[in-house]
Design a protein around this nucleic acid. Structure first.
Lengths: 253, 253
DNA sequence: TAGTGGTCTAGACCACCTG
DNA sequence: AGGTGGTCTAGACCACTAC
C-alpha cells in the first residue's frame, strides 16, 4: 500500500517498492512480476499509476514488458568486449575485417549486409577527412549481425581518390577488409583516433537494433590516419550499450 | 490531426509529427512547444495521449519539460572532450590531478568533494586489483564540479599496502594527485586500461548529476598498472553522456 | 477463453511559474 | 490570477499469448 499523503507521488512509491524487491532478490532476473491488475489491488491505486511506475523501471532498464505475457525482470545480457587490438595488422592479415575477426574469435556466427555508394562530402565529413566540401567520398554502410541478431551499425566514408580501383568500392572488400586494401594501395595506416559517446537511440536505430526501452547506444567515431597524418577514413559506429563494452589500453608514456 | 484507423497508435503519430517539425526546424532548439492543452485541440486526442507522445520524445532526449513553464526543444549541450593525454606524466607534474588539469585548461572553475575511507575488498575489487578478497583497500570517492555543476563521479580503490603513509589516504593528495603520490612511493605507472560502457543512470545518479530524462551515463572503469603489471588502482567513473565525449588515439602498430 | 499488457477517453485536482 | 505541466481516477476496448 502507498501513502497518499506523503507528498511523494504514488507512482514513485510503487516504483521504489518494486525496485527494492528486485534488488533484494525477491524477484530474480527473468521472473515475472505480478500483473498490473493485481498490483492495483496490492497498492490500492489506479492502473495508470501502476503503469507509470513500471514506465520508470523500464526507462531505468531493469524490467521489460511483453505484450500478452507480463512484466519481467530484465536478465543480465552478456557483454562483448571490443579492444583496440581488433585493429592490429596481424589480425588484418589473417581475417576478413575487424568485425568478422572479432565475432569469430568469440564463437558467434557473424554476418553483415553492406551497401556502397558515392556522394559529395558534407561539411562534417569534409572537416574530419580534411578534403574540400563536395569532393566525392565512398560510403560503406554496414549492418553487422551475430547469430542473426543485429549488433552493430557502421558507416564509413573515405575520400574516393583513395579507393578508386580498389575492392573498397565493392561490397566484398576481400581478406583483411578496408584497411588491408588501403595498405595494398600504398596508404599505410599510421594512427587511429576514436571519439566515444553515448545517447538514446533514434526510433530507426531502436528498431534496427531491436533495442528495448531504456537501453542507450554507444557511438564511436573512428578516424584512421595515414602515416603522414592524412585522414583516410571516418567510421561512425552505433553499438547497443547493453551488449558492448569498449576497452582501450596504453602505456603511461 | 491524427488518423484513428491507421493501426498506428495515436500517440506515436503525434510523436512522429512533432519530431518531424523539430528536425525540420519549425521548432528550434530552446523553443517552447504548444501547451499540452493546445495540442489536445490540434490533434483531436485526449491529454494522456499527448503526454504519452511527449514521453517518447523525452525518452529520446529531444525535448525537456519544465513544470509550470512548458515543453522545450532541448538545446544542444557543449561537449567536453576527455583525451587520454589527460593522464600524461607531464600534466601530472604541473597540476593537481587529472580532473582539475582538464577543467582548468578549458576555462572552467573546477571544484571537487572527496571522501576517503578504508574497507575490505569485495569480490569484484579483489579480482581487478589481483589481491585477496577481504584485503584492505583505500577508497577515494569524489564528486567533481565545473562552475558548481556536478559533471563527474569517480570512486577509486587501491590496495592499502600501496597507499600507507602517503597523501593518497588524505583528502588532499597534493600536486599531481594520486598517480604522482604512487610514483613518489616507488610505484611507477606502466599502463592504463579503460573499459567504457553506457547505461541509464540510477535514480541516485540522476539526481546527483542533475540529469534530465533521456540522458544516459558513460561508465569508465580504469585500471592503472605498475610497470611490472601489478594493478595499482581501479577507478570507476560515471559521466553524463550529454556533456562528455572520450577520445583515444593509438598508433596502427 | 481467459489473462496479459497497450491504448485511449473525460474529467479532476495539485504544484509551479509568470504576469 | 491564469496558464503550465504533474498526478490520479474509473472505465473502456484492443492486441497478443497461453491453455
Amino acid at each position: 500500500m502507498v501513502d497518499k499523503t506523503s507528498g511523494v507521488p504514488m507512482h514513485r512509491q510503487v516504483a521504489t517498492d518494486l525496485r527494492g524487491r528486485i534488488t533484494a532478490g525477491e524477484y530474480a532476473p527473468g521472473d515475472k512480476l505480478p500483473s498490473e491488475r493485481a498490483m492495483i489491488e496490492t497498492y490500492g491505486v489506479s492502473r495508470l499509476t501502476i503503469r507509470e511506475a513500471l514506465g520508470l523501471l523500464r526507462a531505468e532498464g531493469i524490467v521489460v514488458t511483453e505484450h500478452g505475457r507480463g512484466v519481467f525482470v530484465r536478465p543480465p545480457t552478456s557483454i562483448q568486449r571490443l579492444s583496440r587490438s581488433r585493429l592490429s595488422r596481424v589480425a588484418r592479415a589473417e581475417d576478413k575485417g575487424a568485425f568478422l575477426a572479432d565475432a569469430a574469435s568469440k564463437g558467434f556466427t557473424p554476418s553483415s549486409s553492406v551497401r556502397v555508394w558515392f556522394e559529395p562530402a558534407d561539411a562534417r565529413t569534409s572537416g574530419h577527412l580534411r578534403i574540400q566540401s563536395g569532393e566525392e567520398v565512398t560510403v560503406r554502410d554496414r549492418v553487422m549481425r551475430a547469430d542473426g541478431l543485429v549488433v552493430q551499425l557502421a558507416i564509413s566514408r573515405l575520400p574516393r581518390k583513395f579507393t578508386c580501383g580498389t575492392a573498397i568500392e565493392q561490397v566484398d572488400t576481400g581478406p583483411g577488409g578496408t584497411y588491408a586494401r588501403l595498405e595494398d594501395a600504398g596508404h599505410a595506416i599510421g594512427d587511429f583516433v576514436e571519439h566515444v559517446g553515448a545517447r538514446m537511440p533514434t526510433p530507426g536505430e531502436a528498431s534496427t537494433l531491436q533495442l528495448d526501452q531504456g537501453i542507450p547506444v554507444i557511438t564511436v567515431m573512428r578516424v584512421a590516419y595515414r602515416e603522414d597524418g592524412t585522414p583516410l577514413e571516418m567510421n561512425n559506429m552505433v553499438l547497443p550499450a547493453n551488449r558492448y563494452e569498449l576497452s582501450y589500453e596504453w602505456p603511461a608514456e
